[in-house]
Amino acid sequence: MALLTVTKLSKQFGGLDAVADVDMHVDAGELVALIGPNGAGKTTLFNLLTGVTPATSGKVTLTTASGKVALLGKRPSDIAKLGLARTFQNIRLFSKLSVRDNLQAAMTHRYHENFFAEILRLPAYYKKEALVGGWTDALLREFDLTAVADLDAGNLPYGTQRRVEIARAAATAPRIIFLDEPAAGMNPEETAGLRELIEKLRTDFQLTVVLIEHDMSLVMNLAERIYVLDHGKMIAEGTPAQIQKDPAVIAAYLGGGVHA
């Protein structure tokens, strides 16, 4: 069943088609990769889906327990509440907050604290904080971040920051997680760790994953299905094996940048 359906989605920036008539769908539990040369419009597509950039035209539908919901025109925060989480190509952490607070801030919409309970520190406040603290501790363990939980996120090494950002996206209790070049700037060892982490998102968190990535070995090993974007157009869709043989894809990558 399609969890997310994208129909004829377009975005023009001053006459330029950044994304043109894109159709795609993501099924529940799938791991889909979105690839394409630099400037193909991959990040713009993520921005459209998560509401950061308003679309020019098209339709994005999310299937929820209570029926289908149109996402376009909604605020990014409301889209996040509906279960779409993301990371950013250039990491955007809450730098001066601890890792723990980064995760807890991402849980804001998952619980409610009464204002008076907050400022008067009533028992209800401690009950809620214990609940959220429990969620956070579990996440910190899952993502191997317990040791750095109380450090400012901005002071962590690059690879760890990437992990915090994924953990933060997971902290929103999403249904789909969009990862924008998570392996960028990582060394092979870190990339291997990342691969495990993405597997974990699917198995332990039962998330649907959409991945933008240039590291082709990662993409070909992880993805079940691949979409290829070039100059804003979706030029191919298929399994890793199909994509590697697709002449349009090979042409887009200037005759053979795609190695498994």
Partner: peptide, 9 residues
């Protein structure tokens, strides 16, 4: 922008 992306209005 990141705050919005994690559901904070």
């Amino acid at each position: 922008i990141a705050a919005e992306a994690v559901g904070i209005n």
